[in-house]
Nucleic acid binder design. Structure first.
Lengths: 154, 154
DNA sequence: AACAGTAGTTCGTTCCACGAACTGTTAATC
DNA sequence: GATTAACAGTTCGTGGAACGAACTACTGTT
């Protein structure tokens, strides 16, 4: 196991390796619902509300053409829809279809369960401390809401 | 910002959103060295030692054909090489070329710096606590060494 | 010697990333 | 009202990356 001289893992390696783990769990969960990681991510973002393409692209950190393709494929799969923006003829608003909303909720719930299991060996106080510290990382770095709280989705 | 009723982020959302952040930082760093995220990941794994394809695939969580392609492209870019395994004619050992080792070190160093910056607002004790808890997640879930400690790479 | 299992590649297919260039619309300026 | 800059999103071309099925060649077991 990759460790420092004193056998402890550093903050940097811990962040990268836990990211690797969460990526794998997230992708595995998505696959069970016939989704790719990127499609799952799109659905999770849209659970909160419909978005314009520009805001979606900014939230997901994607080039405009990448988002156009992702939405195209998701629309073709019947998971999202594009509606005209009454206030701006150039713009569209992307929202979940009925089926997309259902799939998003199932996927989100199952992903929450799997991610939660990663800390199953933790005491409640340890989970709270981890949440507080990672929450600080998220807040300090202004990470967009690409994933809702487990309870907030229902 | 997506929070619980009491305004605090939960462990699950914190893990997912911090993963989103680290993914973005890692991908941006890789791009500055002309690498994709997957190529960066391959180089980081190979920094420790050469590996056979089976072990590489298991470490990176990739299908065999995916790894063949990734190694093909990295070999074509002059970053890795395949050598015959003297003990098994079926097997190859993948290692970094001179140029690949150099690029891997630069990429790894810069990525460490950028990831470290994500916790720049933390006190040393907070960093240690975060490292200890995330390290537990890594250990409990047997995450492979896809990224070395900052000092261990030199 | 025969067979099962392993190591890795090839093939076909789909998804996904980006930059450049484009069309059409809106907002600002004169 | 006309002009221009900026914005919203799409198209196109290109390259990377994911997987399963099928394959070849080799190793280990019986």
């Amino acid at each position: 196991m990759s460790k420092n001289d004193d056998g402890r893992i550093g903050t940097v390696a811990a962040l990268v390796r836990s990211t690797f783990l969460v990526n794998a769990v997230y992708a595995d969960s998505a696959r069970e619902y016939g989704l790719t990681q990127q499609q799952g991510q799109l659905l999770c973002v849209l659970m909160a509300q419909p978005y314009g393409m520009s805001e979606l692209g900014a939230t997901l950190g994607l080039a405009k053409s990448s988002l156009t393709g992702l939405v195209d494929r998701s629309e073709r799969n019947g998971l999202v829809r594009r509606d005209c923006d009454p206030g701006d003829s150039r713009a569209v608003r992307v929202s979940l279809t009925g089926r997309g909303a259902e799939l998003a909720e199932e996927f989100h719930t199952e992903t929450c369960r799997r991610i939660d299991e990663l800390t199953s060996g933790f005491a409640p106080a340890e989970r709270d401390t981890l949440a507080a510290l990672l929450g600080r990382v998220v807040t300090d770095n202004e990470v967009p809401a690409v994933f809702m709280e487990p309870d907030a989705a229902h």
